[in-house]
Design a binder for these strands. Structure first.
Length: 553
RNA sequence: UGCCUGAUAGUAUAAUGGUAGUACGACUGUUUUUGGUGCAGUUUGUCUUGGUUCGAAUCCAGGUCGGGCAACCA
């Protein structure tokens, strides 16, 4: 019995095309504009495009949509390539819309010769005004009457640099009264005396998106050109260009873009967060960027799994970020090395412990029988988490309190005998006794305790900085919340624990290792970590049933 | 006022005229040397009004509500 997973609507279209013989293989493309870093919304598109080709034996190109020299930079090209690769995908070809500038120029000339395009000297205000409104038709001006010969001559001169920015544009001659505003003689070329990150100063005219994208698809024989819903009205123009240019008929299909709770997903807003220093760069672990998530410790596999689970449809959506976190935990639970780190220390003295110290063994990962073990030093003086002790314990509190017993993970059962306070009444130390025959792995004490605590031996502990991240915004639906999105920034999205106490095994682990600090969450070493100073990022917390219980009262 | 587009549990997504299912969440219980994990279970849904049909989430008609469209951005 093979449970066939149901297909999304694009997979259905592809299967139909393959079955009917319309195509014998498919080609898709991922077409970012190199004007910013990729975010989780792009990951959805990447997984879709590359996933489709992988599933149906086709190929996917990485194509940079670099038709606007004033916003695009090589830095972004490099980061995009790194992110796509990190997500686990391999492109067939690395291409650029700017590779096709000469061809695109020829396409425009062809339209001019066919009488389907003309040079317009109007200002952008005039053009906008003549365009009409959605309910009233636009009007065509006198420039539309220029002959193909005149148009060709002026277009050539535009290319040669004879005219200033904004003085002339080339427009496709379609229909000034179309109900689709994009068909009201859209601009296809504009003059920009600007340096392009790849073509340098070779060009001073650049094609518009609508005159570059479909043709680029066509040149590359893209069979399924997949984009997001806001491009639906562009499809008429996409098809018009291909039809009138008589080139390979690529087709555009649209799906709903990803929205996620407690975050923003537009390059404009992400750029603002970076520029105005609300975060520390594009790869700040709180960002919805791929690079931010990577630095935070989200595994690529978890992001792929997430994209798979949210599905592909045409309905507007707002996905709970909790689903992403679920995917991250699911993956990390299987691979993360368990370690003990105390964030907020409370000293525990084992009064009846007579040895100097001993090495105990603890499993690296209880989920992984082949995960191995590490040694953990134990001694008379330990740190436990301050929140794991209460002098007056509420009901169902399974941690340490006077007269109560708990197990120290992978070590012994201890019993709280005495609480030591300073002059102000603050608890400075807890004195306990341990049960020698309760040693982990060879427990003959017969005692059962409800609570198990993480701990570190004070004299063996390494110190580390730990960065705890929370959601960047306070409201679920940031894009649709009242007022400017920055008003909803969560000022408490970063907590730095300057001096956490870590078991020494953390000193020897590899940089790429993923950790679960037992009972605290999943962590990864940050790039700012040095041999003198360990810095960890909290990837995600563990689910906390006790916190939920406390909240309920 | 025009055109395009969509509507299934709290959130997503499936059912392609024939038993409304799955995941996340929430809630129970159970296991556990992590209040984690695992396991078992409970919970909640077809926007609305008509029509076609033996039978409608699905087809048809009207309505309601949401999103998009008038950048020399992509």
């Amino acid at each position: 019995m093979s449970e066939e997973k149901s297909l999304n609507f694009i997979e259905e279209i592809v299967e139909e095309h393959l079955k009917s013989g319309k195509y014998t293989s498919i080609t898709t493309r991922f077409p970012p504009e190199p004007n910013g870093y990729l975010h989780i919304g792009h990951a959805k598109s990447i997984c879709l495009n590359f996933g489709l080709a992988k599933k149906y034996g086709g190929k996917t190109n990485l194509r940079f949509d670099d038709t606007n020299p004033t916003t695009e930079e090589t830095e972004y090209v490099e980061s995009i390539k790194e992110d796509v690769r990190w997500l686990g995908f391999e492109w067939a070809q690395e291409l650029y819309a700017s590779n096709y500038f000469e061809q695109l120029y020829g396409f425009a000339m062809k339209l001019i010769e066919k009488g389907l395009a003309y040079v317009d000297d109007s200002s952008s205000e005039e053009i906008a005004q003549q365009k009409g409104t959605p309910t009233t038709p636009g009007v065509r001006n006198a420039f539309a009457e220029r002959t193909p010969e005149d148009n060709a001559k002026i277009f050539r001169e535009m290319r040669e640099g004879k005219y200033e920015d904004g003085s002339k544009v080339v427009r496709a001659k379609i229909d000034m009264s179309s109900p689709n505003m994009l068909l009201r003689d859209p601009i296809i070329y504009r003059i920009k005396h600007a340096h392009h990150h790849r073509t340098g100063d070779d060009w001073c005219i650049y094609p518009m998106y609508d005159f570059a994208h479909g043709q680029s698809d066509s040149i590359e024989n893209i069979t399924h050109s997949i984009c997001t819903l806001e491009f639906v009205p562009h499809r008429d123009l996409y098809d018009w260009c291909i039809e009138n240019l008589e080139i390979f008929p690529s087709h555009q299909y649209e799906f709903a873009r990803l929205n996620m709770t407690y975050t923003v997903m537009s390059k404009r807003k992400l750029l603002q967060l970076v520029n105005e220093k609300h975060v520390n760069g594009w790869d700040d672990p709180r960002m919805s960027t791929i690079s931010g998530m990577r630095r935070r410790g989200y595994p690529a596999e978890a992001i792929r799994e997430f994209c798979d689970r949210i599905g592909i449809a045409k309905r507007e959506n707002l996905i709970d970020v909790g689903l992403l976190e679920f995917c991250v935990r699911e993956q990390l639970n299987k691979i993360a090395l368990r370690r003990m780190v105390v964030f907020d220390p409370l000293k525990v003295v084992i009064t009846n412990y007579t040895g100097e110290e001993e090495l105990l063994t603890s499993e690296n990962n209880p989920e992984d029988p082949n995960g191995g073990h590490r040694e953990v030093p134990f001694s008379k003086e330990l740190y436990i988490e301050r929140e794991d002790f209460m002098e007056v314990a509420p009901k169902k509190y399974f941690r340490l309190s006077p007269g109560q017993m708990v197990r120290l993970k992978s070590a012994y059962i201890i019993k709280c005998e005495e609480v030591v306070k300073d002059a102000e009444g603050n608890i400075t130390e807890v004195r306990c006794t341990y049960i020698p025959e309760s040693k982990s792995g060879s427990d003959t004490s017969g005692i059962n305790v409800k609570g198990t605590l993480h701990w570190v031996s004070i004299s063996h502990a390494a110190t580390a900085e730990v960065r705890l991240y929370d959601r960047l915004f306070k409201v679920e639906d940031v894009a649709n919340a009242e007022g400017d999105f920055k008003e909803h920034i969560n000022d408490d999205s970063l907590h730095v624990v300057g001096h956490a106490y870590a078991e020494p095994a953390l000193l020897n682990d590899k940089v790429d290792d993923r950790y679960q600090f037992i009972r605290k969450g999943y962590f990864i070493l940050d790039k700012e970590s040095t041999s003198d100073k360990l810095v960890f990022n909290r990837t995600v917390t563990l689910k906390d049933g006790w916190a939920k219980e406390v909240k309920k009262g």
